[in-house]
Computed example of a mutant assay.
Amino acid sequence: MKNFIDRENELQFLEDQYSASSASLIVLYGRRRVGKTALMTHFIQNKRALYFLVTEESEHQNRNAFKDMVADFTGNALLKAAAVDHW
């Protein structure tokens, strides 16, 4: 892995979670313009991963966009056709 300045601890944590045998959810948050997106896009390079960035659209639009992305990622036509009214 190429050096990613001052993010070695974060990258190691993400790698540990990615390699774990159990499922986990990682929420990445923080101040604007500190490199959260760069960190994640760097980390998921060459990995089977799904990256979804919530937009300023409505919750309904974000939920449907996420559903469609997951359906495409997994190849699940049933999910693609499903109506999802809640997270």
Rank of each mutant, 00 (worst) to 15 (best):
F66E: 04
Y51W: 05
Y18R: 00
G75F: 09
V54C: 13
S22A: 06
N62T: 13
V34P: 06
E10F: 10
F73M: 15
R63Q: 04
R7S: 03
A81G: 14
H86C: 00
F66R: 06
S24G: 11
R63W: 00
A77Q: 13
L78T: 14
L25Y: 06
S19Q: 14
R7M: 01
Y29G: 14
F66D: 05
E8F: 03
I44H: 01
M69C: 02
V27F: 04
E15Q: 15
R63S: 02
D72M: 13
E15R: 12
R48H: 05
E56K: 00
I26S: 08
M69I: 10
S22D: 01
A65W: 01
R33H: 10
D68M: 12
K2R: 12
D6V: 11
L78H: 10
R31N: 05
A83M: 12
G75N: 06
E10Q: 14
Q17V: 03
T37P: 03
S24H: 10
H86S: 15
G75A: 09
H86T: 15
G75D: 04
E59Y: 07
Y18D: 05
Q45D: 09
N76R: 12
S19K: 08
A83G: 08
Y29T: 08
F52H: 04
A71W: 02
T74E: 14
L39F: 12
L11S: 12
R63H: 02
H60T: 10
R31C: 09
A71R: 11
L50V: 09
K67L: 07
L39V: 02
G75I: 09
E15Y: 10
K2I: 11
M40E: 00
K36D: 06
V54L: 10
V70Y: 00
H60S: 11
V27E: 06
R33I: 03
K2C: 14
K67F: 01
S24Q: 04
S19L: 01
E57R: 09
N64E: 09
H60M: 08
R7N: 05
I44V: 15
T41D: 00
Y29F: 06
R63T: 11
E15K: 13
N64C: 03
D85G: 12
E57H: 09
Y29W: 08
V34F: 05
L53T: 10
N62A: 07
K36W: 09
T41P: 02
L79K: 11
T55P: 01
N9I: 15
Y51A: 01
T74Q: 14
Y51Q: 07
N64R: 03
L28E: 01
A82R: 08
M1A: 07
V54R: 02
L79W: 11
K80C: 04
A83P: 14
F4M: 11
L50K: 06
G75R: 05
